[in-house]
Amino acid sequence: MSLTDILVSPHGAQLTNMFLMDRNSSVMEFFPKGWLKLAGVGQFVFHWIASWSGMRHQGAWRDPNGDKCPYPEDDRRCMSIFKSGKIGYNETYFGEWTRNVLDEVKTRKMEEASKKGSASTSSGCACS
């Protein structure tokens, strides 16, 4: 398995690095609290880029417990507070999510290797 198979990152400009990855790579994305309510369709941009590039967006973690906002949580002023906040984690959820993604990548790599192996043995030599 190459190092470019899985990109794990919070939502942001650094996810543009996926353009440097191989097709069939996987992306795991993290969001701060409030992003789902306030970010609109922009929160899906890296999901779309992964799909258009032949990669697999393996889901997203949306932190339910991030920084508190002094305004109602659907108030647009909260976006800057949520955006600058730290993203928490749930160790049990992350462990299972990561295991599932790694298992899927391993299965995919083994299937690709077996296809390459069977193609080289079944094609035979056309030279006589």
Rank of each mutant, 00 (worst) to 15 (best):
G88T: 02
H11K: 02
S128V: 08
V41F: 15
R99G: 04
G95K: 04
D67C: 08
I87T: 07
W97K: 12
V45H: 12
K33N: 04
H57G: 04
T16P: 01
R62H: 15
R23K: 13
S53F: 14
V8W: 09
C127L: 09
F31Q: 04
S25P: 12
A39K: 14
K115Y: 11
R108T: 06
A39H: 06
E111S: 04
D67N: 07
R76F: 05
K115W: 11
H47K: 13
E104W: 10
D75W: 12
T16G: 11
I87G: 08
L7N: 02
S25F: 10
M55N: 09
L102F: 10
T4M: 03
G95M: 03
S123N: 06
Q43G: 15
G124Q: 03
S9M: 09
G95Q: 03
D63L: 13
A126D: 12
C78M: 03
F44P: 00
I49A: 08
G85N: 11
A113D: 03
F30Y: 12
N90G: 06
W97H: 12
F30T: 04
D22S: 09
T98L: 11
A39M: 15
R56G: 01
S51N: 06
G59L: 09
S80M: 11
T107S: 14
L38S: 14
E29M: 10
K115P: 00
T4Q: 04
R76N: 01
L102R: 05
E91A: 10
G40A: 15
T4N: 13
V105G: 01
G42C: 05
F19D: 09
L36W: 09
S25L: 10
G42V: 10
G88Y: 06
